[in-house]
Design a protein around this nucleic acid. Structure first.
Lengths: 200, 200
DNA sequence: AAACGTTGCAAGCAAGTACTTGCATTTTGT
DNA sequence: ACAAAATGCAAGTACTTGCTTGCAACGTTT
């Protein structure tokens, strides 16, 4: 095996550099050096810097089968389910911090990136909206604008991830407060939807 | 009067270009051209591109006397006050979209920028936390972690602004939904804090 | 051993970058 | 009206950028 991990090393270096210095700020020479590879090898593999950028994005793109996986685990208890959703989302995004930052930086240069970054939240939003609609039909919660509330739910979580991206120094501190934030967020939803916390 | 608005024009052009193409992506030539000024004039005024960048940031930095202004207008009615705070904040940030975008893009290049962008939210967070603490002492609302809740309040609003930055196309649509979002956000706080909506 | 694909090296090109110099021209303040 | 300050123009410097060419070394497969 071992068949040349060169390509992989280049892409990892590119992901890392792009996320720090942005597309324009990252020189192909520096990417190659970071990957411990000759610059020419980079071009032989990817043809152009723009190609490398695109391949990196698509390779590290969030697969987002999340909603399918989640459906199986939801129990019907609003508080527990929302907590599960929140933690699952945060965990997924923590692994993608570099990717998220690249997206945010390069959106103006390539607007279609916006759709890519927000792929996960988007799908999860729809998923949550459907879940809430179900609960409403069972008359367990009040009727509301569930699309909006779902967007707000994941918006709050995304904002938390963004803060961790932005303040790398205090990131540990913010991450430590994640649990309390999730608790509060979930509580707000539970209260607002007037969910009665019974067994069933 | 009229004493040469050249400097001003250059800074406006720089603000605009930086927010679209980022620091590295913006050529001094293009900035000068956009300002309808010779490139040399730019250097005579600012010395270097880096200097120009810094001057633009400090010049368009949010002054943020907001909290002082707001204190006078708060009535003691939680729902109305939160609504006022939210709309005031959103209005202020809408005017600073370029500034916000620059900050987000260039944070990795200059981490101290993070503090700058979040100046407004930070101060408002403290302000809101104090306000809620007051209400709690008057036993009008339940005791909670008000620092955290304040951060979440403005975090939600900031996220909304960020969406408008990112999706320039649907910006109008998102802006139209601002009011409903604020209503829902405020309602969540009112419900969660068990505020009894009486006269006083 | 032969053939092949992968990588490295030295050198360089064309274009773009921030920034400078010297001089002419316009605008402004007094 | 005159001096001073602000701006424009042409040309150019020193550097970086993405990217290419030609050739040699290495490892794997057959």
């Amino acid at each position: 095996m071992e068949k040349s991990n060169t390509r992989e090393r280049i892409m990892e270096a590119a992901l890392s550099l792009f996320s720090i210095k942005g597309y324009d700020g990252s020189a192909t020479r520096d990417i190659a050096q970071m990957a411990e590879v000759n610059e020419i090898t980079l071009f032989r593999h990817f043809g152009s810097k723009e190609n490398l950028f695109r391949e990196v994005l698509s390779h590290y793109a969030p697969t987002s089968m999340l909603s399918e996986k989640l459906n199986a685990q939801l129990q019907g208890n609003l508080r527990e389910d929302l907590t599960l959703l929140a933690h699952t989302y945060l965990e997924a995004e923590y692994k993608n911090l570099d990717y998220v930052r690249i997206g945010i930086m390069e959106i103006p240069r390539n607007p279609s990136l916006a759709d890519l970054i927000y792929t996960i939240p988007r799908r999860l939003e729809e998923h949550l909206a459907e879940y809430l609609t179900d609960l409403a039909q069972q008359q367990k919660i009040d009727e509301r604008n569930f699309k909006l509330m779902s967007r707000m739910f994941y918006g709050q979580l995304f904002h938390h991830v963004l803060m961790i991206c932005s303040f790398k120094d205090n990131a540990a501190l913010l991450q430590a407060q994640s649990d309390e934030m999730v608790d509060t967020l979930v509580s707000m939803f539970v209260h607002t939807l007037r969910y009665t916390e019974n067994e069933e």
